[in-house]
Structure formats: C-alpha cells, structure tokens
Amino acid sequence: MGYKKIFNVALGLTLIVTGVGVSCVFASDPPPEGETGSVAVRLFLTEGAVPADDPNAAVWNTIEPAEFKLAPQVHWPDRIQEVTVKSVNVRGVHNGQDMAILLEYADPSEDAADAAAVEFMVGDKMAHFAHGQEMLQVEGGDVNIWYWKKEHGKATDMTAKGFKTLRPQENQDVSASGFWRDGTWRVVFSRPLQTPDELDVQVTPGEWRNVAFAFWDGEIVDGAVKEKGSQKAVSSWWYIRAEPPPDNSIYGYVVLGIVLAAGFEFFLVRKIRRGNES
C-alpha cells in the first residue's frame, strides 16, 4: 500500500469521526422540559432491596430528582386559591421486582393531617387527572391513588373513577412512610411493580405510565384544617417509567446492519464493473 493510499484512508477516517461527532451533537435534542419543570419520573434500576419505608436512605441522595410544579385544585367546585406546597421533587428506584418513589416537598409545619398522594392511570384507557372524572366525548378509565397521611402512618391503596367515587381497595399493596425535618417532608411510597389486582397500576420496565401528585397542608388555622378533601395542591399528568435492563442485542443488530450495508456496496460495485466490461 502506497503512502498516498494510507494518507487517503487516514483522511477519510478523520472526516468520518468528525462527521459522526458533529451529527451526534446536532441529533440529540435537549429533553423536552416543561416550561417550569420536568416531564417524567425515571425509576432507576438498582440491585438489591429498594429503600421502601426509608425516606432517608443514602441511595436517594444519588438520584437527580424530577421537579413538578403544583397548583391549587380548581377542577372541582370545592376549591381554594392558595396552597402551601408549590412544587415537589420526585425520585424513584426499582429492582425489577419492587419500586419505591420518594416525594420531597416544603411544608413549614409538621401536622397530623399533612398528607400526600400519587395518582396513576390504570390500564390502557385514559383517565382524567381529577380522580378519573367523567369526560363527555371520551370513555375514561380508573385511576389508582396511593394516599399517605401523617396521622395514619401508613399508605392507603385507592381507586376512583369520577367525583365521589374514591374508595380504598380490598387489596392493600402499597406501603408508605414519611419523615419531616426543618420544613421539608420526605415521603416514600413502595409497592411491587406488578400486582394481581386489576385495579392497580401495573409497572413494566421500559413502558411509560401517567402519574400525578397531590398534597394537603394539615395545619390547623382558626380551628379548622387548612387543606382537606378537594382543597389541595395538585400536579397535572406527567410521565413515569421504570428503567429497562440494558439490552445488548441492539449491538448485534448494529453489526448486522453494517455487514449488510458493506455487502451491498461490494455487490453493487461488482455489478457495475461487470456491466461496464460486457
């Protein structure tokens, strides 16, 4: 091989590396962040037990939280216009069997009636974020709500499909634990990814689900609890997904694609050359 040929190959490789690098930079659009926060919760895949019932486990500090802004509930008539909890930081992990979701939010006082909830769509039917409220042109589905209240000290696994239909499920599959310090609640919910209960959200790694959050400030003001029932802070629907295990078969398909493309080139050139000779 002459110097000229070696130079040509080296030049070609340099250009390829530069080209691929440039295309990577331009191809990867920034993630579609909401105007004021995140759009999805990622349940990171870990080995070993998930930190169920431990809002202060070390693993939580290793995870970048997703932040969701909250608004007063306005959909139902029994509404208030100011809420205490303005935003929530959400972290999640799973180990292929169980998942744990940590909600971290500011609330200046620790009160018996402080409460937090995570809501999911169940199955394939879309459900309105206000407790699966009836929609007029779309047949909606159920929502599954995991509710935690400080004075209960545990989670309640609930189902709803519209106004006044919220009820605890027969099968209680969720556990929860809260810890308050210096004006911040850390509440962790945990559950197996899959349950036999058809009223539950089923979480399959790699698949997107819809999730929403709600919070109540249970402070007593003038003899009454400040936020209760539909007087609460809520989020819209956002996305949640359990991270799938790494799939190395992809690289096999990449190699197959490269080999097929190279083979195509070889046969194309051979065909053209034979055509020219004949």
Partner: peptide, 8 residues
C-alpha cells in the same frame, strides 16, 4: 455502512 449501523 456506519450510517446504516447508526440508524439501526
């Protein structure tokens, strides 16, 4: 071929 692999 690299582009095909990248697409895959």
């Amino acid at each position: 071929p690299l582009l095909v692999g990248w697409q895959a």
